[in-house]
Each structure stands twice: as C-alpha cells, then as structure tokens.
Write a protein that binds this DNA or RNA. Structure first.
Lengths: 230, 230
DNA sequence: ACCTGAACACCGTTCAAGT
DNA sequence: ACCTGAACACCGTTCAAGT
C-alpha cells in the first residue's frame, strides 16, 4: 500500500500554512485552478479536509495566500540602472512567473476585485515599482498616469486570444479553414501573413516574446517622452 | 401564491436559447458570475433545471452564449472617419459594455483560454477591428503588432487595482492608514497626491474615465507614429 | 418522442461527538 | 483543548422512469 506509506511519510512533516499553500500552488500548476479543491489539497497532503482550516480560514483566504506565494517569486527591482531598464526587467520577471503559473493572472484579478485592497505581496510589488519610477525622476502625477497606462501589463499579463492549446487536438467544433476565411477575412489575412513571415517559429507562428517586448517598449518610450517634456 | 402565478406567466412564453441566455446575463449582472448556477437560472425562468439542457449543451456552452450576447452589444465601427477615431469610439463602446456587465471580462478571458478559438462574436469583433486598421493604411504586419500592443485593452478592459467597493464598508481586516503609510510609502504618497489633486471627484478621487482615455491616446499616438514612419 | 424527478459524484463549510 | 467524521446545503450532469 504505497498510498498509505506516502501519507504516513507526509504526516511526519507537520502541517503548516506554507506547506498547504505550496501544495495548492503545485496542484493549480498541474491541473488548473478549477480542479483545485480543499478536499484535493488535503488528499495530496495525506490529511483530512478539515485539517486545512487550521492554517487557512477558508478557500478565498487560501487563494490570497497562493497569490502572495507566486508574486513573491518575482525578482525585486534591479539597483544601479536607469528606471526604464529596471521596470523592463521586473515586468519580464513577472511575466516569467505568470508563464510558470498560468492560473495566477486570473486569480489575482478576481481576488483583487473581491477584496478592498490587493494582497500584501501585490501591494509590495506595486510599491517598489512606484519607487523605481520616482527614483527615475517621474513626478507623482506622472507615476499615477504611468500605472494606468501599464494597466495589467504591470503584472506581465498579456491576453493571447489565439494561443495554441497544449496537446493540439484539432478540436471537432472549430470552424473549418474555408469557413474562417469566408467569415473572418481580416483575421485570415493576418494569420497567413504571420505564418508566412515566421516559418521558423514553432507553434502558432507568432513570436509571443517578441510581441510582448515590442508592446512594452512602445509604452515605455511613450512614457519617457512625456517624462522628458515635463 | 404570487410565485406560482409568475412561473405560470413565464412558462406561457416558450423557453428558447435566447431567453435562457438573456436570463443568465441578467442574473450575472445582479449577483456576479459565481452566484450563477444552472439551477438558479431555471428557477428564475420557472422551469425545471434539466429543461435548460434542451437549449444549451452544458454550462460552458451557456457561458459562451452569454459572451456572444454582451459582445453583440458593442457598437460596430463607425464609417466615414479616420482609423483612430473609429478605433477609439469602438473601444470606448466596449468599455461601456464591460461596465454594464462586470463579469464579462473575466468570463471572456477564461473561456477563451479554455477554447481553441474565441467565440463567434469575439471573432467578429476582432475581425472588424482589424478591418478598420487595414482601411486606415496599416500594413498587415503593423496590424499584427497593433493587436498585441492593444492587448486586453482591445476589449476595453483595464485592471483597476484600487477600485472602491460598492457599499463602502471600511473592511475590518484592511491595514490601518498608519500601517499602510509605513509599509507602502510610495502608494501612500501617490494616493495622497491623487486625493489632493482631484477633490471634486466622488469616490476614489481618481477619474477612471480620464485615466483610461489618457492611456488609450498614448497607445494610439504611438501606433500612429509607427504607421507614418512605414 | 418528449419531459423530468431522482440519483450520482462532487463541492465548501458547520458542528457535534470523540479523544 | 484539540481533532475529525458525519452532515448540511449546495453544485453540474446522467439516466431511467413516467407521460
């Protein structure tokens, strides 16, 4: 009975809030946040479901804790460089975190909407980001504008509408190529141009990393122009 | 028995996919998407839960249908103007839709992630948006870049991290002002500057609409500069 | 053939009973 | 005082029994 042995081995390490959160993050990474349940976390820890409630008040508080775990993985701002390099590196670090934890952007968004204040780690992230802008000579008003301009990109999130699905089954109820071309001519034109331009890139034929940095740089250059003018 | 009469009156109008979707959208508008269940929709329609499955295959397909209902509310692109005005007006129309249906951005995002293709209405929205760029003289490559730059803003979504909560109870476990100031000095500085600057604005002291248009215009000007250069 | 009640396999969380 | 099994009030969906 390997399962019982595993459970015994696990229960030798005492349960802690950190262990609960780490397990929850690992399960969400594997199976997505929809498949994450208190019962399943308990099972993975070899523990009865109610034992979790000693370390987290309820599921919402668990999700808040998970947010703080992953936001804590984002690199702090680099010192000794100009503001633009520091912001750029940090946002790219946040993006890497979100690629590691695909569920995080959605959870951060929905939990932030439900709370009055972002979670502590998100607050700390924003605060040090503002600090970089301020140290770079931005007026407080311009920082305010800048945060709005960055929007969700501040957390490295970019909404990919045509991302390839892992596994890549053709999906039975997807529209046929001819129908796509007839109904959505502009999308088709664009998709073909992209496929032709970037033959070497695997997957969707679109270099997401390049596009992300292109968008990021355009925004940063615009902000820098405003900064120089003030 | 008013309830029974209501149910009878409702069931006189035959159930249809449109009526199911409209009811679901209305319930989500009122109570949020978390409180939306097949059982609750059925109850609102005075119908047994299983009756819904004649008109929608399952809950995911219901959510897809709801997306198409609300995206269909976005104005089509205005004709007879320059590309920038047309894009601007359309994005502002999408933003108004999302303010009417606060659950929509999250559902669009999560459902798009789960499907291989965006829902038909989202495809149509994107297609006509691309059409506006193309008619405005954008090369296909530049349109491709532009879509990435707009990102989620293309659907009018902007992530507001410090939105005031309706009802405005002080929230017992929110950090005290002194603690906020000590731990997050830059956020506090910014919040105070904003509050001082815009005394007249009700609520958070931050004019969301102005900020949204500021960000939008910065992005559009950047794109226009690239367009003129090519 | 159509409709639907009961049932199944879940879920988060309460609570009282056991140690 | 601590821990936990059973129970409660849900959920989406299957399926067989009723019309």
């Amino acid at each position: 009975m390997a399962t019982q042995a595993d459970a015994a081995a696990r229960s030798r390490t005492p349960l802690s809030r950190q262990r609960v959160l780490d397990t929850a993050v690992a399960l969400a990474d594997e199976g997505g946040v929809d498949a994450l349940s208190m019962r399943r976390i308990a099972q993975a820890l070899g523990v009865v479901p109610m034992a979790l409630y000693k370390h987290v008040a309820n599921k919402d508080e668990l999700l808040d804790g998970m947010i703080d775990v992953v936001v804590g993985e984002v690199d702090p701002p680099a010192g000794g460089t100009d503001w633009k390099t520091a912001v750029r590196q940090r946002i790219l670090s946040a993006r890497r975190m979100l690629l590691r934890h695909p569920w995080a952007a959605g959870v951060i968004e929905s939990r932030t909407k439900a709370r009055t204040t972002p979670t502590p780690a998100v607050l700390a992230y924003l605060d040090s980001m503002i600090g970089v802008f301020r140290a770079g000579g931005f007026s407080i008003d311009l920082v305010h504008h800048a945060l709005h301009v960055m929007g969700s990109r501040l957390l490295g999130f970019s909404q990919e509408l045509f991302e390839d699905r892992p596994g890549g089954e053709p999906d039975p109820d997807a529209p046929a190529p001819e129908e796509m071309a007839a109904r959505y001519p502009h999308i088709t034109e664009l998709a073909m141009a992209v496929a032709h331009d970037r033959d070497s890139v695997v997957g969707s034929g679109c270099d997401d990393q390049f596009e992300f940095e292109f968008a990021l740089d355009l925004t940063l250059d615009g902000l820098d122009r405003l900064r120089a003018r003030s």
